[in-house]
Write a protein that binds this DNA or RNA. Structure first.
Lengths: 136, 136
DNA sequence: GGGTGTTGGTCTCAAAAAGAGACCAGCACT
DNA sequence: AGTGCTGGTCTCTTTTTGAGACCAACACCC
């Protein structure tokens, strides 16, 4: 079973790792997860996991992200060490974003969740439809 | 290697699964991920993965969540089929939240990411510190 | 040399989401 | 009668996000 490594740790431990200290600054796991829980983070990670992209390419690739949020999300990902930003001295200068080793490592863990989402989206959509019908 | 199953699919495919159609409603993966990318979702999932909890217990367990966001996040998790809500006719009535099978299945995938966060938080914190020092 | 296009942003303003905290009904217990 | 506990909701303020205008610098074209 591919989840054996994870299962060796009790769920309680993972939970405690998220709440230890009671506040964010004392809880590293929450601190890290926070940076990934934005609306665009996982999407941009998935894009950059495929290949490095330039700013404008990413903007065209994800048409419904605002330029402002693209800038900011890339900045945050870079700050947390997942993404490398390189400016090429062309005219006008172009900027390439790529995953760091840390970013690739993180994406491997994230990918399980993306995979699950792809495999189970109809179950989720079904649950949502049933729920909404019941509330109506 | 425990990630072999995932690696069988190309990263490109996962990425395409997140962008197909160009908008949210046509992209199931983004639709599902969206529901999990909130600030509190993963934390509450981790808590409920440990054991079922009542509303007030969760509130005490996560002291820095507002009652308003606790209500709403649990509602969303319930709507997407991850969480079961049961009202017991005590006086005053108590409400218990627990994971569904779908929720447990999803948490298994999520746990990889939580695990990674726990293992690598010092790398992330280090990257952040270095970055901030460079910007100063 | 003047007009147009490209680059990767920033700035402002409006809309949406989140946080803080008061408030509520219903009943038990004292 | 007063107090407490339950799981919420309501309102108000602050923060975050979204939409879109604007920018400098240069290249290319004529």
């Amino acid at each position: 079973m591919d989840s054996s490594i994870v299962k060796l740790r009790s769920k309680l431990e993972v939970y405690k790792a998220m709440t230890d200290g009671g506040n964010l600054s004392d809880c590293p796991v929450r601190d890290v997860i926070q940076g990934l829980s934005g609306k665009w983070s996982s999407l941009l990670m998935a894009a950059l996991a495929e290949q490095p992209y330039r700013f404008g390419e990413l903007r065209r690739l994800v048409p419904d992200i605002s330029q402002r949020m693209l800038t900011q999300t890339l900045y945050d990902l870079q700050r947390d060490g997942y993404v490398h930003r390189e400016v090429f001295p062309t005219k006008p200068p172009s900027v390439e974003y790529s995953l760091t080793d840390l970013g690739r490592s993180m994406f491997e863990a994230l990918q399980h969740l993306l995979q699950w989402a792809e495999n189970n989206h109809d179950a989720v959509r079904g649950a949502r439809a049933t729920f909404d019908a019941g509330q109506a």
